[in-house]
């Protein structure tokens, strides 16, 4: 069985070209809508303090024990007192976490997220209705791999042939292939930070990660400080430079003797 080449010229290629072009346009629209995130000094300081503690925790081997102790004491003190918290008052109140709805920054984050989602969903819905309106009711291509009968209803919608193999599919399946397969191509033509990433953003939002959930990060920060403090206390310091003289000398002796230890 062969297909009419007109289907290739007037269905397959147009859909692919339109989807690539729409992806490019959406990328630029999103860049236009993107407002730089507004932060204040205190919020930045809060995050930087956490990052500093994390850095100290991973790279402690590179500084001397004295310097490490000094930093550990300083940071632990600051964390206990809540010195770097954005609003230290919220810590005393304890049980009342700030409402993300009333926080102007959280509001802005949510607006940004909504704008991104709109820019994601509106063009996809439009293309999908365009395809179902114009290109339904015929077989457009054959998939090179077999599929189970379950996919027949989805991939052959509008084609009333009960016995045809499932790998012959309609143009809507070509749309879905493009939707998922072009993501890698967009990274090539638009660079790493393109709008296709927003699918990941949605996933992050659903899994309640502090980065994706607006407003969730604030209420946890004093607890994060506490946790970071405990992790710092647990570290048993060992310096990379310990016994460096002996190790260097030993290495030098080994080399000068052709890799063999001589005893006289």
């Amino acid at each position: 069985m062969f297909l009419d080449p007109a289907i290739r010229d007037w269905v397959l290629f147009p859909i692919m070209i339109v989807m690539v072009l729409v992806g490019v346009v959406r990328h630029y629209i999103q860049q236009m809508l993107n407002s730089p995130p507004k932060t204040n000094v205190k919020a930045v300081r809060e995050m930087q303090a956490l990052q500093r503690a994390a850095r100290l925790r991973t790279c402690y081997g590179q500084i001397s024990p004295a310097s490490f102790e000094l930093r550990r004491t300083k940071l632990s003190e600051a964390f206990t007192e809540g010195k770097y918290l954005k609003n230290p008052a919220s810590r005393e109140q304890g049980a009342a976490p700030p409402n993300p709805m009333t926080d102007p920054q959280g509001m802005e984050q949510m607006m940004d997220m909504m704008k991104k989602n709109m820019a994601m969903f509106i063009p996809q819905t439009l293309i999908m209705s365009w395809i179902t309106f114009f290109f339904s009711g015929f077989v457009a291509l054959k998939l090179p791999f077999p599929l189970t009968l379950r996919f027949k209803a989805m991939l052959q919608r509008g084609i009333e042939t009960a016995d045809m193999d499932v790998s012959w599919v309609s143009s809507l399946s070509w749309y879905f292939l493009n939707l998922f397969g072009l993501r890698g191509i967009f990274t090539l033509i638009l660079g790493e930070e393109n709008g296709e990433r927003s699918v990941d953003d949605i996933k992050a939002m659903q899994t309640f990660s502090p980065a994706g959930q607006p407003g969730a990060a604030q209420q946890d920060l004093s607890k994060m400080f506490e946790g970071e403090k405990e992790l710092l206390q647990l570290i048993e310091h060992s310096w990379d430079m310990r016994d460096i003289e002996e190790r260097t000398l030993h290495k030098w002796v080994l080399q000068s003797q052709g890799g063999r230890l001589k005893t006289e």
Binding site: F2, D4, R8, P144, L177
Partner: peptide
């Protein structure tokens, strides 16, 4: 794994264009 769907897209495209469509 992340680019497997890109592979499937171009695989399907080339397979259909080369072997399925009547010339």
């Amino acid at each position: 794994g992340g680019n497997a769907l890109s592979f499937v897209l171009f695989w399907t495209l080339a397979y259909s264009v080369v072997h399925i469509y009547d010339l």
